[in-house]
Amino acid sequence: MIDLQEIKFGYSKKRVLFKDLNIRLKAGHIYGLLGKNGAGKTTLLKIMSGLCFPQCGVPTILGQNAVRRAPDVLSKIFFLGEEYFVPHLKIKDYVRSLSPFYLDFNYSQFEHYLKTFEIEDTKTYLDKLSFGQKKKVVISFALATNAQILMMDEPTNGLDIPSKSIFRQLLAASVSEEQLVIISTHQVRDLHSLIDAVVILDNGEIVLNEFTEKITQKLQFVRFNEQQCTKEDIVYQQDDLNGILAVLQNRNNLESKLDLELLFNAAMFNKEAINNIFNPKNIENHA
């Protein structure tokens, strides 16, 4: 669905952000795009959607060059930026203005999502809503487009705690096998139990691109006392109020629950070990 090969990109010739970046994302999955501030998450989404043009390499989306911004591709993708422009319109007029461009838009779904987010009145002016309320409307719209590719940049920013939970439920319920969802965030806890693949980006480089299932096969997330394991198994460890949290190499195929925050920290502090575990030669492919 999305295939970026040997992408080179920089906002200026001297400041290169991505160099030989390769990534392939498949349908039927919800990817969590994780990275520190300024790691290039938003830029990567923009390259995928055709908003930014790489200096080298071809970003392919739905089999076409993203740079071309072909309408048949654009009608099947929806990009929800961290901050989203809303005109001075009532919700119903906003939908009337934008929805005809998306052939699979479903108004009943939109109403259902709004209702779930507890936004009842579609005669309210969008720009008069709070940031969080606006976000709920736009998320509802994005989901109702039934776009094949849904890109969301920090979608939970500005949402209150119950709404974050509703967002996760709605997204999990609405995504089909034909769809691909990419959620970029630095708030890893918000994606817990939602994503089934993780992409970790650091300094313009893909540190990890794996399905969560494979991650828990190769890594173990545990709370332990130092005496309990050998040092060579430890990929990363950090102190916690109740002991030590650690990421271990899972040599004995033991089951553990994926801790995204711990995984992210492990990828940031021990990039080399993560690379070695997940086969650095093919890290960009889920062949």
Partner: peptide, 18 residues
């Protein structure tokens, strides 16, 4: 005029010629 508006406009499913 602004970045968010431009994102929405450029990603509107229509060709540049249209």
């Amino acid at each position: 005029k602004n970045k968010d508006k431009a994102i929405q406009y450029l990603l509107l499913p229509a060709t540049t010629l249209e």
